[in-house]
């Protein structure tokens, strides 16, 4: 009996090790590669042998990549602030007020967040051209509303639905208007939810590729994913793997740190939203 138990335990921990190795290895290998230059790059090294900052220097030394990081920070931050601003009031209405067609409206919002983005690409392209914001950050800020806004509304609605009714009733008895209820009663309680939702929306905007690829035409206006996706070497055949890995590590490490810090909250937000961040 105990032998069998031991065996089960060993099998279980073996499975755990496999899961962890599979999850972590590709990023680990990217880090190892990012520190290799020259011929070292083209040897398969399972363990870090050299620590050469050359790739990092070449990526950060070129002006365009730093520029891309700033573009991405600006676009993602603005998008998130805008989405949260609109979503707080909207989700209050959806979570706390009974009105006809509420379920339908929620389904519509969910439908928009699940939209194939390609279906609006032609129309958005026209809109971007019409507004004269092609090849500017505002093209991305505007188009990212399509997935950040429904997502934030949806998650905040589920969070707000769970807040106890008593708090609101007390405020209503005191004669508080809905606006006062939101800003003075709910907002202080919602901070954790706002941080989580904001972070998830930020990651979504940070990672977006299709719109950023289509609505930019010069290297200086690219966002990080487009810059990495289109990073090319001196010639067509020569793919600069070292710098690509260095760039990948640079933009991923902050994300991973953020995700690990906010782990629990992110898991809660993800499962409430059920939407891929």
């Amino acid at each position: 009996m105990t032998a069998q138990k031991l065996l089960t335990n060993i099998a279980f921990y073996a499975l755990v090790v496999v899961i962890v190795v599979f999850s972590v290895f590709p990023f680990y290998y990217a880090i190892v590669t990012s520190f290799s230059t020259g011929t070292e790059l083209f040897k398969v090294n399972y363990w870090p042998k050299v620590f050469d900052w050359g790739n990092y220097e070449s990526v950060l030394g070129g002006r365009n990549f730093v520029r891309s990081i700033w573009n991405s920070v600006f676009i993602a931050t603005t998008t998130v602030v805008f989405a949260l601003f609109l979503a707080v009031t909207a989700s209050y209405a959806l979570a706390r007020v009974r009105f006809r067609g509420r379920g339908l409206l929620l389904m519509m919002i969910l439908a928009v967040s699940m939209f194939p983005q390609i279906a609006v690409l032609a129309g958005l392209f026209e809109l971007v051209r019409f507004l004269g914001i092609f090849n500017t950050p505002y093209a991305m800020i505007m188009s990212y509303v399509i997935f950040t806004l429904p997502f934030t509304v949806w998650v905040l609605t589920t969070f707000m639905r769970d807040l106890p009714v008593e708090i609101e009733e007390a405020a209503i008895v005191d004669g508080a208007t809905p606006w006062i209820i939101i800003t003075k009663v709910f907002l202080p309680l919602l901070w954790p939810a706002l941080v989580t939702t904001g972070l998830l929306a930020f990651i979504g905007a940070w990672n977006e590729f299709l719109f950023a690829l289509t609505f930019t035409s010069s290297e200086t206006t690219r966002t990080v994913p487009v810059a990495i996706g289109l990073l090319s070497g001196a010639s067509q055949q020569e793919i600069p793997w070292g710098p690509i890995m260095a760039a990948s590590v640079i933009v991923t490490v902050p994300l991973i740190i953020l995700v690990l810090i906010f782990q629990r909250k992110i898991v809660a937000g993800l499962t409430a939203g059920g939407v891929k961040g």
């Binding site: 990023f27 990217a30 996706g229 933009v251 991923t252 994300l255 991973i256 953020l258």
Partner: peptide
């Protein structure tokens, strides 16, 4: 970690 890494990366 795999979830946090941008798709392009």
């Amino acid at each position: 970690i795999p979830w946090a890494i941008p798709t392009i990366v």
